[in-house]
Design a protein around this nucleic acid. Structure first.
Lengths: 334, 334
DNA sequence: CTGAAAGCGCTAACAT
DNA sequence: ATGTTAGCGCTTTCAG
């Protein structure tokens, strides 16, 4: 059996309550005994039993992270894991742990409920991809401390945070205008890809505000594969005059675009500039390295970690913010 | 206050002990009362308090996962996260949770000790990159159920699992020979990159066994950046006759190689074949898509999850295995 | 087959 | 400033 609080108490000639108090840095303990007790703890190699503590205190010092997880998730959605890293770091720094729970849109609500009633964690962090109206109801009903990472696509009283994709788009637009590009084209992802949509929407607004017209015929939507991006690029190139800059909604689209451009012997950025969003997986590795508007996903996760902790301290807090500013990274494609 | 075991007991007209027994599917309970009690549990919406349970049972149903985590980790080491996904899935399927702990080579031993004495988890999973002799000592001393993911670079009695990189290399070699390539070149990573080393070593052995000589002048070592891979490629191309196949130790090297080949107007695979390992981040997206020997990292993680659970059941088990067979994926670069 | 009783190791009033 | 006393909610002998 390992050494308990009573062993320490006995060895130090005090009561268990006293030991508990020095453990929790209570102010009502004399320096003298505190030092002595701490000495005995060292000597005996005493380590408080985390399970007993969390039971007695009704606090786990643990946060649950709900996200989709499956084969290839780390390759296809590295951002999610970067966010996870950030959140874990933030929690770790404040003495909290993070436990992972694979979830889907369908089973997340049930799990939120379980987490709350079984008191598995002091709070939950969940990615927007597993968040639904039902999940929102569970959160409200149980009153569990929470934060959704990614803006919900319906209005609610739930706490969330997200980066501002509209802003990212406008930053991209401004850069393109500064460089003097006039005939702007865009390639987006699927219609229901909100991120893609917001980025291009933000860009279009910025262009319009500045009086630079974006020809609707130069705005294409594919399905975020290199193949489809290649097709869109070829369509974009046909009518004269061809665009002098193509803004791609994400890395994969940009890759297909770049390959097609190379295939028709157009050089980047001399003949056509290419710009996109995010630094990963390969914006910096392709040839030429791509100019992007990047988001620090680790930082987003880190902030998410701090926000849930704020929520566990102040349950009434309502956080709905755009955070983690996008950042322009100029490389060689513009 | 939420509903406890006593509320259920009272409502069902039995003792708390009985409720506990139906909860744990004890065989000494009559079907009749079991059904009745379960009915009451449903009715009252009873959910056992996980904290109280783990305290009473001295078991957390939780496994700790120690790994390096920092900015860009998800982008630079996606494999680790894919393994994490697999492990989480395996544990989740068996009713265990996975808690993440950011660690370094230096602080891992201390944390292993804490985890064991504070009983934070029933077992630990740790990535080889945070495993050291000191960590091995802590594990042996505390006797905690564990599994190291990745073969330690020193002999020890610790449990580990890994994929067989030598075997991967030999599979690559066999494919290249089958395709009839004769003048084989190789580009490896840094000298201390064991994975790179094993892959190329395994390939070389397979070539030698088959009587295909690999000219030492055609084996280069860089530092796993596209730039260095580019330089190596140019060196490889200079002496006549030039190689007809280049085996790259990883994706990044292959990318640099490919870009350089394109730069000097050599076409792949007509002029030179290129082959590498792993499907990610971009082996399938570049032009031409690369033939690779791939490893299913999710599966590795999944197996790792099962192994630790085996260890928590049978602490004396010694697992040291090469698992998760490499798989040849032929695409267009060979 | 069921229940009473005794903890698991720690914290938190409340006395002193 | 310290100790006493009661639990936290569940499991687990051990009787009956």
């Amino acid at each position: 059996m390992s050494v308990t609080i009573h062993d320490v108490a006995k060895a130090a000639g005090v009561s268990a309550a006293t030991v508990s108090k020095v453990l929790n840095a209570s102010s009502t303990i004399s320096d003298e005994t505190a030092v002595r007790v701490r000495g005995v703890m060292k000597e005996l190699g005493y380590q408080p039993n985390a399970r007993a503590r969390s039971f007695a205190m009704k606090a786990t010092k643990n946060i649950l992270f709900l996200m989709k997880m499956g084969v290839n998730a780390a390759y296809e959605r590295p951002h999610m894991f970067e966010i996870l890293s950030g959140a874990t770091s933030a929690l770790d720094a404040r003495g909290y742990t993070l436990t992972l729970k694979p979830a889907t849109l369908a089973d997340a609500p049930a799990f939120i409920e379980t987490a709350a009633t079984q008191k598995l964690a002091d709070g939950i962090l969940l990615h927007a991809s597993v968040f639904s109206k039902k999940a929102a109801q569970c959160i409200e009903k149980t009153g569990i401390a929470h934060l959704v990472i990614g803006q919900p696509n319906f209005p609610c009283k739930i706490c969330w945070m997200d980066t501002d994709n509209n802003l990212s788009g406008s930053i991209a637009a401004r850069h393109l205008m500064e460089r003097g590009y006039k005939r702007i084209a865009m390639i987006g992802g699927k219609p229901d890809d909100m991120i893609s949509w917001s980025r291009l929407h933000g860009a279009r607004e910025a262009f319009e505000e500045a009086g630079v017209a974006v020809d609707a015929a130069r705005v294409k939507q594919g399905d975020s594969t290199p193949q489809s991006a290649g097709r869109m690029t070829r369509q974009l190139l046909k009518p004269e005059p061809r665009p002098d800059a193509i803004l791609c909604a994400n890395n994969i689209i940009a890759l297909g675009c770049l390959q097609t451009l190379r295939g028709v012997k157009l050089s980047v950025p001399q003949d056509v500039a290419v710009m996109t969003f995010d630094s990963h997986p390969f914006a910096s590795l392709v040839d030429p390295p791509l100019t992007v508007v990047d988001i620090n996903m680790f930082d987003m996760g880190f902030q998410a970690g701090r926000f849930v902790l704020d929520k566990v301290r102040k349950p009434k807090l309502l956080v709905q913010v755009h955070t983690t500013l996008p950042e322009l990274v100029v490389r060689e494609s513009t």
